[in-house]
Design a protein around this nucleic acid. Sequence first.
DNA 1: TCTTATGCATAATTCTCTTATGTATTAACA
DNA 2: TGTTAATACATAAGAGAATTATGCATAAGA
Lengths: 110, 110
Amino acid sequence: MHSPELLKGTLQTIVLKVLKDHGRMYGYEITQRVKELSDDRILLTEGALYPTLHKLEAEGMLRTETETIGKRVRKYYSLTPQGRSLVKERVSEFVAFIKTMGNVLQVELG
Amino acid sequence: MHSPELLKGTLQTIVLKVLKDHGRMYGYEITQRVKELSDDRILLTEGALYPTLHKLEAEGMLRTETETIGKRVRKYYSLTPQGRSLVKERVSEFVAFIKTMGNVLQVELG
DNA sequence: TCTTATGCATAATTCTCTTATGTATTAACA
DNA sequence: TGTTAATACATAAGAGAATTATGCATAAGA
């Protein structure tokens, strides 16, 4: 598991990008996908994930549909057009940040 | 200027690595060096830097020498042996984190 | 039957940083 | 020569983003 401090500020970026690549997903599914993609190194906590999803929805970046599987409710999230723009922005920001950090730390990344 | 959220958790790593590469430095000098290396994109604030330096010193990672230039006091910091180990650890952690993020975000970094 | 996994949600707390404030010296510019 | 910007330290108040704790409920597996 990575030092949790480094993760700060990357949660929105992760959620948005995973939603872009995979399409329609529900919260729990996102945590599992991230866990898988990160080889168990990034474990999203519910206390961070759900408020983030709600916030992005309130800002018009995500839209939701609720589905009932058996007796269990799932809330599916997908990107709105604005959300799609935001992903690009966030990912480029992150890439730019990493390049800068590479210079400051004098290390080769990637 | 980078999104300040992304910076969270990287301050210790930055300070330690810059001190390792440059040797003995004082606080203000560190901010200028980082500003330069990052092409003005990372501007360390005093409110974050000084407490971090004090903390690392208290933990035995840094040692200090005070010098008076004219009537102005400078506090020089340098790495202790433990500090030197910590740099390696922090930088590898960061590199590992970036690799993981590359997988999760499906982007080429570096 | 009991534990683990699935699935959502929110409140309390912690941690790290920004912003604001304070003090003081030195250089530059007008 | 007076004012501003740069140098140099430090700490306190506040904000923001996460962790941890808690709560509820269904489904699967041992």
